[in-house]
């Protein structure tokens, strides 16, 4: 007989049915993937970045494919807070996954305002603070690469977020990611999400110009996975473990094996991004795959796996 496996996880005080999320910007605002997959099979869901006012985003080309990856420079194109509340929240209320709203803005006040407006919504589990977007002129990564600013923005949004979980999404485009992670946690972050995309460029050698209208974009997909696994392990060891802070690991996850790697490295949960574009049902498949892995390895509770990296 098959042993029962418990893959539910405690994530900053809430219970998730399983440790698999879909990542911001790759799954819409609510149930946009529902035509292709069972969105209720997910443990967590993160919305596209929401700003106070709607944003048009960057000129095209906004994406370009690279070896086992892609660059994007969407530029926070989104419907804005009001329309999100009016059109998307009613759908989110019906979703069983824990929903996190990804919050973005050009100023600390804008970030705080978005969080404050949504802090009272029962349908929302928490916020993911996007201080790591490499594709906008103001905001985003400019907040996420300087520890002093990380402290400031995290504490401001923490206040605005009330009882909701505050997860801070870290950029890998820094000298030492642990310095930023520590600043976020000490300023009140309940969870850490890493990594966002790596700033990158593709040049068209016929024209001698960058392919993307924005010149640079963020690299995502399988190409970044080993670096992301390393960074998750580093932040787990240096910041998260002792403070009991959960990590949402992401970067190139496409299969259950990829997900398990992140969990062994120290992630409590994982987020699937780019892979949703190719295989919209892959997050649900990963949930099943993680269960099978646990059965095969005789793991009864996935907790045993988190940060279980063997050394030496």
């Amino acid at each position: 007989m098959e042993e029962a496996v418990d893959i539910s996880v405690d994530f900053a005080g809430i219970r998730l049915a399983n440790p698999v999320f879909t990542a911001s910007g790759t799954c819409g605002y609510a149930d946009e993937l529902a035509d292709f997959t069972d969105v209720n099979a997910l443990g967590g869901f993160i919305t596209k970045s929401i700003t106070l006012k709607p944003k048009k985003g960057n000129a095209t080309p906004r994406i370009v494919e690279t070896d086992s990856g892609m660059l994007n420079a969407i530029g926070w194109a989104n419907i804005g807070l009001d329309k999100f509340i009016e059109e998307k929240l009613p759908i989110i209320e019906k979703m069983s996954a824990a929903v996190f709203v990804n919050v973005a803005g050009e100023s600390i006040d804008e970030y705080a305002a978005v969080a404050e407006h949504l802090a009272g919504e029962a349908a929302i589990a928490g916020f993911e603070l996007n201080i790591s977007c490499p594709n906008v002129a103001k905001g985003g990564i400019t907040f996420g690469t300087d520890a002093v600013q990380v402290t400031e923005i995290t504490s401001a949004v923490k206040k605005a977020a009330g009882e909701k979980i505050l997860m801070v999404k870290l950029s890998p485009n820094v000298t030492d990611i642990s310095v930023i992670a520590r600043a976020a946690v000490e300023a009140g972050a309940d969870a850490l999400s890493l990594v966002n995309t790596f700033t990158a460029m593709v040049i068209d050698i016929e024209t001698g110009k960058p392919v993307l209208a924005n010149k640079t974009g963020g690299l995502s997909g399988p190409a970044i996975k080993p670096i992301a696994v390393y960074l998750v392990n580093k932040v787990y060891n240096e910041v998260a473990k002792n403070r009991g802070i959960p990590i949402l690991g992401s970067g190139g996850i496409r299969t259950a094996s990829d997900a398990v790697e992140f969990i062994i490295a120290g992630a409590t949960a994982v987020a699937v991004g780019t892979a949703n574009f190719i295989e919209p049902g892959c997050a649900a498949k990963i949930v099943e795959g993680i269960k099978k892995y646990c059965v095969r390895k005789k793991i009864t509770n996935i907790k045993e796996l988190t940060g279980s990296l063997g050394i030496g």
Partner: peptide, 17 residues
Amino acid sequence: ERMMACGIGICQSCAVE
């Protein structure tokens, strides 16, 4: 025509002004 990542309205990569 635009460069498309998802083709299903999710990624916002295929913007037409």
